[in-house]
Amino acid sequence: MSWFKDTLTSSIGRKLIMAITGLGLIGFLLVHLIGNLALLAGDGGISFNEYAHSMKGSPVILIGEVVIFSGFLFHIIDGIGLVISNKKARPVSYGGGANAKTSTGSKIMGPLGIVITVFFILHLVDFFYRAKIADDLGLDANNIADLYALVVEKFQSPAYVAIYVVSMIAIGIHLNHGFQSAFQTFGLNHLKYTPIIKFIGTAYAVVVPGAFAFIPLFFYFTK
């Protein structure tokens, strides 16, 4: 299996890991968003809590969670590794600056990744940990854990909302480059299709993080 290891540890292989895990996580975001839209149902949280409840206990969900967590983990660890080895490839930096024409997102994928990771941890501690591990939430009218109340409470704080919105912008920029970049890494670059891929990537990077950011703003301004 040394070929397998060689492939994945080569410069292209490591980019493949970034691309595969990245696209997986992009998909996960959409699923996550669809669930979150239940927050906007206007029924005092009944459907959202039902949705949250359904996410507990099933082995299928558990496997899904493991996959997503490993996706994050590989994406982050591989990303850090790449940043380190890429830095090593240029030990002395330019004194006169580096002014090559590129999109800004592509040059700051690393820093954006750090912002997103911090947000990811915060988000896990605040919601995932409370709902699934500590399991210390109050009960709603249907006698299931009232995650909705926790969400509403959190989104009352302007600082918290700001962190959310800023993080979603970071995710948007990260995705805008990451989506089309993944296809490039897979070798899918074509005169006809690359513009379409780029359009879809940008649209996705605006709509999905935008919708995520809309929720805290909605709760903050309609409290």
């Binding site: 980019k15 240029r90 999109s103 070798g187």
Partner: peptide, 27 residues
């Protein structure tokens, strides 16, 4: 280093070589 698809190489290439070539190599 590894490629992060920034496109700086192609933008600065005196012969204008396209990063489509990088995709082809990946493939």
């Amino acid at each position: 280093g590894a490629c992060t698809n920034t496109g700086a190489c192609s933008a600065e290439c005196p012969k204008g070589i396209s990063i489509e070539n990088i995709a082809r190599m990946n493939r």
